[in-house]
Design a protein around this nucleic acid. Sequence first.
DNA 1: ACCGTCGCACGACTTGTTAG
DNA 2: CTAACAAGTCGTGCGACGGT
Length: 488
Amino acid sequence: METKQRNAHATSEPHRIEKLYIENTLLRISGALFCHDRKRASSRTEEIKLNSSVSEKTIVIRPDPKLGQPGQLAHKIFIALIKKHSDYGRPIRHEVSFTKRELGRLIGRKEWGGRDSEQLSHALLEIHYTFIKAHFKKSDGRHVEHSFNIFPEIVLERREFASDPIEACTITLAEPIIASLQDEHFTCLNHALMMQLGTIGQALYMRLFFHFANLYDGRRRKILSFEKRYDDICNEWLGGLTILKHKSKIIGEQLGQHLDQLLQAGFLSSHGVKKAKSGDGLVVNFRPGAAFFEDYERFYRRRHQAELQWEFHEDRRKISEPLKVAYLFAEKRTGRPVDATGFVPTKDVETAKLLLATLGFDEMSSFFDYALAETKKTNFDVQTLGGIKQYLPGYLAFRERRASNKAQEDARKLREQEEARRAAYEHFRRRAAKDIFDTLPDHDKAVIDGLAETYAASFGGALRGTMAEVGRIRFTIERYGARLKTFE
DNA sequence: ACCGTCGCACGACTTGTTAG
DNA sequence: CTAACAAGTCGTGCGACGGT
């Protein structure tokens, strides 16, 4: 069913499905963040600083001292998450959810064994624990420095124990990235093309597309080219890949095959390595190919993101909300939030789904408060969400009572308000009538006084004077009522 | 140019689950 | 209780990178 829908979507609008939107600063960060050198990635822990000469382009990356720099697998996961996030479309969401199988497909693994789960959580934590300091362009053109993690929050579901594999996951994206996406600072990439490449090829493609798109004026295709120092490419685009000395090695064993892949895909029309004009080091030059111009025309003519909201809502209902409910329960039960390495068991997430069938997401907090208060009464030491389920009928009744009490209360208040307003109006009317009476010519006053006297004649004593007063107002209103404002 | 190292992916085997 | 299928575990080969 689900795959059927997906395929239907893919065939009806293939060009939409293969787009990938990435925020521009994030694109630059990702070049330095992910180390494509598999041997050194986990041991690189020192601070990485880029473009320290131009202050608003400076990027500082501080990898976790224990985990080191995020590696190739982390890069694949990152791309998969960004792809999923961009498929959510607008309005831009703060979180991305996925099941492990879905992610397995997205990073191109045919099977997903037990160890793969650990690799996944390890890679996610590598990104989570890496601090970034970068400048974001505001809508008014100013640059503001932000210090953040790309994934400030990671929520995991495991079967039962901490050693069990991951079932599902929700990840929050950093606030400055979301804000910048909202300001339309993003680059659109061809995801289908990226999936054919290795991670080095992907990183090169992302940066080259970004630069080509900035340089291209829509006309002079032939002369469009881009040059960059080889050592800078290693550091700024490929996260500290070893800088080799000889051109033959670079082409033959390091970058060559990845560049050739880009050439084959038609993204590049040519590339070359030559000696830098300054004398030391090497410079790589790139020329875009037909595939670049095609994608450029396609993406930038109408560059608004696809509105695939159903997918987001689906994920939120199936993955993110149950996970959050389970986390909320753990937090309420223990009195402290679950930390980054924590998780919630599948059973709780399943129970959360059941609860969500009856209660709204917003109601969970108040339900837990009610249920936990109930457990205290009988000294029931709840461990899982399953233990809470029995309080659901009680809570529903409690909610009903509270709602009907509130409805009664509201109705009473409304009645009182109405009465007060009527009283105020009556008071106002009387005063107004009296004012009208006072301004009347003596002749008219006498007529009304006469009517009032007759009206009050049947009363005796002190009441007679009061009734005469009431009568005076009544007859004034009867005769001159048009001069009064009506109720409302 | 060649070989050692390391992380990753894959497939074969094992364990778990559920329906009949 | 067991068969059938799905999911998890483990070992191993591969390929990329870097040192010699």
